[in-house]
Every structure is written in structure tokens, then in C-alpha cells.
Design a protein around this nucleic acid. Structure first.
Lengths: 206, 206
DNA sequence: AAATTGCGTGAACACGCGTTCACTGACATA
DNA sequence: TATGTCAGTGAACGCGTGTTCACGCAATTT
């Protein structure tokens, strides 16, 4: 019942996905990904590609999904660090920047396709980022007692800042990365302070 | 001394640049820009392209420069609105979002090449955005009396938020755009409040 | 044991690409 | 008026592309 055949198929499928990931780099993005090159790297004939994906777009969307999954895992990891004590902001930002450093290809893919030329891709990425924001909103509502609107403003701003920094980190060396991380932590703190001030101004007594 | 010849050449050059701009759209980015198609739209033979640019990359960098120029003009326009009175934050953000709406192709180009696959391109875009940030820092230092470090943190955060919103605005309809604009204004205000609070905390007496 | 399924294959296709080359003819220069 | 310059040309090149097709052959099903 193992299904030697299905097993083999899944293996080649993974090989294709991995090959595509490998070909993604700072110099060579999804747009210039070639079916033939991917197939070559995966060690199969170009024609066999069609046994696994209908076309390149389907492969690309799969990559985005895999990237999103990795991001989701990052979030869990981040929450663990929070549970272990220490500054929430600091550990979240650090985890995020760590992720970017360790998964440049994936993060670059997400960034590129966010402003890319396929509406399906853009929407897929936006959806992933919205997950990110939504979880942050939940956290703010739970831990602090912000009103929903303010929490959403704050979460969205933070996500924009952090993703922006992540983008810059892609081209940065270790030292610059460190600087970026510290800068981002401070910026997130500024936003938190601003939100707090706004909250107090809105409901001065309570 | 008019130089009929040079005049004609400049005209074709402009035609090439314009043709390239026209071909940039939500579905068709710089990466998939073709020399032959651009030449066709400009109304010249493919080979004539080389009389004006050494290769496609040179054309692309020219496009980025032109985009940056347009952004610079936006900044001046924005400052005029400020001089006319009214909320600084509000009019700046509105102007920016207006620009994005009116120059989608250019802004999309900047966004895409910011995370694009050519280091030269990325650096060119980063330079443009740094101009943007630097002018905001100057403004903060002049108008308020922030210390340099805090002004830089604040300006960088604001630029990230605003550019992020601009990116989202590319896919949004008019109503969603309006919502985004208002959201961004509030977020920038939050940052400003947070920076102010930070400033007061750092130097309580002065 | 026989029949079927389906992954992987190699040849072949039409196509658009960037680039080269020698050339033309209108403008500039002397 | 004679000479030079150079933007624009059309043919031709080699190449990599996505996609199709009929086929082989091992795993699976009957």
C-alpha cells in the first residue's frame, strides 16, 4: 500500500519545486524562470514537467504557497520565543530578520510577486501577508486592550515597516543586517508608543 | 544651430522611452520587456535601437531615472501644498497617493526593480528612495527639533509605511484607495506621536 | 498471467529573441 | 559643391523557448 509509483511521482515533484527554488536568486527571478532549465536541474526531460504541473504559473503559485507556509512556521517559532520571556517586539523582529536571512530565495519570491505581473500571484502574496497582520491584530487585542480599529492601524504599520526592512536586508551584509534589525526594533517601539498615546487621547478615563 | 539631425535623434530616443513606458503594465513588467517589441511600438527597426542604447539594461536604468525625477517633482508639489497651509501629514500623503494613481506604470517599475534581479537597478531605486527619506529628515530637523537619530528613525518608518501603502494602492479601486489614504494618514500620525513621546522621554527637561 | 495505467522520453515543431553586418541616404561640414 | 558622418535599414545568424506527439516500460490492476 506504499504506492511505489505515487511515491516516485511525489519525489520528482519535490525535485522540480526544489530545482525552481534553487534557480531563484538575486540575479534570476521567477519571471525569467525557464521550464527547460528547471527540468534540467531536476534531472528530468522537459516534457515530463507536464506530468506534474499544467504550466509554469502553477509551479510558481506552488512556490508562493510553500513560502507562505515557511512564514507561518516562522510565526509559531516567534511566539515560542515570546513565551520564553524577553521583549516581545525584540524577539519578534529578530526572528523575522533571521528568517529573511535564512530564506532569502523565498522571501525574495514573495516580495517580487507582491508587485509582480500576475494578479493571481499578487493576491496569493497579499493573502499571506494578511495572515501575518491578522495574527498581530489578535495579539494586540488580547494582550493589550486596544480597540479594534487602532489595533489594525498599528499592526498594519508594523508589518509594513518590518517587511520593508526585510526587503532591505536581502542586499545587506551581516553588519548592515544587524543595524537594520536594531533600527526596526526601535521603529516598532515608536509605533507602539504612538498607538498607546493615541489610545490614551481617545479614551482618557477608563 | 538647431541641429535637425540631433533633434530627430532625441525625438526617436523619447519615442523609445515612451514605448517602453507604454508596454509596462500590471501584466507585463520590465523583465519581460522585449527590444523588438519596444522598437516596433516606437516605429523603428529593431537594429536602430542600438543607436540610442547599448542594451535593454541601459534603457531600463533610464526609465528608473525618469521615474525618480517624477517622484522628485512630486515632492516639490507636496511642499507647495504644505506652504499653502493645511495639515502637513495629510497633504503629503494625499499628494503621494495621487502620484501613485496617476503614474502607476512608473511606480510599479520602481517597486519591481527595488526587489528586482539587477543589482544596478536595485541600487538605483534605493538611491531614489533615500532622497525621499533624506528630505523628510531635513524637514523634521528644521521644523521640529528632533535629534538627528530619532528624526532618521521616524522618517525611515514613515517612508516604509507610505511606500507600502502605495504598493497596495496599485491594485485598488478608487474607494479602496481612499480608505488606504486615510489609513496611511492615521498611521503616520501614530508614528509622529510615538516619536514625540520618545523625544520627551529621552530629554525630559530642555 | 494478461491487460491497463501513467511517468518519463527524444524528436520535432514553430516562434521570438538579441545581435551582427554591410548598406542607404539625408544632413553636416569644409 | 565635394566629402564625411551617422540615424535608420533589412537580411541573416544561432539560440533557447514552450508545447505536441507517439512511444517504451515499469508499476499496478484485473
Amino acid at each position: 500500500m506504499a504506492g511505489i509509483r505515487a511515491q516516485q511521482k511525489e519525489k520528482t515533484r519535490r525535485a522540480l519545486i526544489q530545482a525552481a527554488m534553487n534557480q531563484l536568486s538575486a540575479e534570476h527571478g521567477y519571471a525569467s524562470l525557464s521550464l527547460r532549465e528547471v527540468a534540467r536541474e531536476a534531472g528530468i526531460a522537459p516534457t515530463s514537467f507536464y506530468r506534474h504541473f499544467q504550466n509554469m504559473e502553477e509551479l510558481g503559485l506552488t512556490l508562493v504557497d510553500e513560502g507562505g507556509l515557511a512564514l507561518r512556521q516562522l510565526l509559531r517559532q516567534s511566539r515560542q520565543q515570546i513565551a520564553n520571556g524577553g521583549s516581545i517586539i525584540r524577539s519578534s523582529v529578530r526572528t523575522f530578520m533571521q528568517f529573511v536571512g535564512n530564506n532569502k530565495a523565498i522571501f525574495r519570491l514573495l516580495l517580487q510577486e507582491k508587485s509582480g505581473n500576475s494578479r493571481d500571484f499578487r493576491m496569493a502574496v497579499v493573502r499571506e501577508i494578511e495572515h501575518f497582520t491578522a495574527e498581530l491584530v489578535d495579539y494586540l487585542l488580547d494582550e493589550q486592550d486596544y480597540q479594534r480599529e487602532l489595533a489594525e492601524l498599528q499592526a498594519d504599520a508594523i508589518v509594513r515597516i518590518v517587511f520593508g526592512a526585510g526587503a532591505d536586508a536581502l542586499d545587506a551584509d551581516a553588519q548592515e543586517c544587524e543595524r537594520l534589525t536594531e533600527q526596526t526594533i526601535q521603529q516598532v517601539r515608536i509605533v507602539a508608543r504612538g498607538a498607546e498615546a493615541t489610545r490614551l487621547a481617545a479614551r482618557p478615563r477608563e
